[in-house]
């Protein structure tokens, strides 16, 4: 019943590959520059306000570095340049994904993938660190769940919580404060979501290793004939 895929069909379409590698570059830049900015104030608060003499919701186990101004000065410049590229790249990806029905065809689970026995089997393969690849070449159920969560939950959350730290953007869109519960809450959420994204990347890279690093890497570069 299943139609055979045309011989020329690729695993990863061009727009996916281009935006993926732009993402890799901006993600690394955003993560490193984010740490640079964070070094000046490694404490987190909930609500509107927060400063050194106030109790923190939680803090990181190192001292604030306020002396090396250039770390956070360049951290900010790199962060915002990378953020602009990431947001423009993400917007292009989203527009293409909607236009080309990429999300319907690749992110929405099929009927088989929603059966408990199948989900348990895929989970088992992941937990035992076995090759998680789907026989069909499409995304497995955990990939679909993770990519949907990253694209439609974590990335919007990290962008909007970042913008909530801007005194200018929040003057134009004060609803952002309602969404995140204040400037310091937004900063804390920005940090937590950034950590979740780093965790995703670590697992993502581990999975490409289990699925055959060379093959998955090449398919994200050349498209990889199925």
């Amino acid at each position: 019943m299943t139609a055979p895929a045309p011989a020329t069909q690729v695993i990863h379409k061009g727009p996916v590959r281009i935006t993926h590698w732009v993402n890799v570059l901006t993600f690394v830049a955003l993560a490193i520059s984010g740490i640079g900015i964070l070094l000046a104030h490694p404490r987190f608060y909930w609500g509107e306000t927060g400063f050194f003499d106030m109790p923190a919701a939680f803090e990181l186990p190192f001292d604030a570095n306020l002396e090396d101004l250039w770390v956070r000065a360049y951290g900010r410049e790199v962060h915002f340049l990378a953020a602009w590229i990431a947001v423009l790249n993400g917007t292009a990806y989203l527009a293409w994904g909607i236009y080309a029905r990429h999300f319907q065809s690749s992110f929405v689970p099929n009927r088989r993938q929603l059966q408990w026995a199948y989900i348990a089997q895929v989970l088992g393969r992941h937990v035992r660190l076995q090759n998680p690849s789907e026989e069909s070449g499409g995304y497995n159920i955990l990939q679909k769940t993770a990519y949907t969560g990253v694209v439609f939950v974590l990335l919007p959350a990290v962008i909007l919580s970042g913008l909530t730290m801007s005194p200018a953007v929040t003057a134009a869109f004060p609803q952002l404060f309602t969404l995140f519960g204040g400037r310091q809450s937004a900063r804390t959420i920005h940090f937590i979501v950034a950590n979740a994204l780093v965790l995703f990347v670590v697992i993502h890279v581990l999975m490409t290793y289990l699925a055959g690093f060379r093959r998955t890497l090449m398919s994200m570069i050349t498209g990889g004939k199925q």
């Binding site: 964070l38 000046a40 956070r72 900010r76 005194p167 400037r183």
Partner: peptide, 12 residues
Amino acid sequence: TQHSCEEGWSAI
């Protein structure tokens, strides 16, 4: 109003 420092702290 809220004063927000580039270091990360803010106060009103």
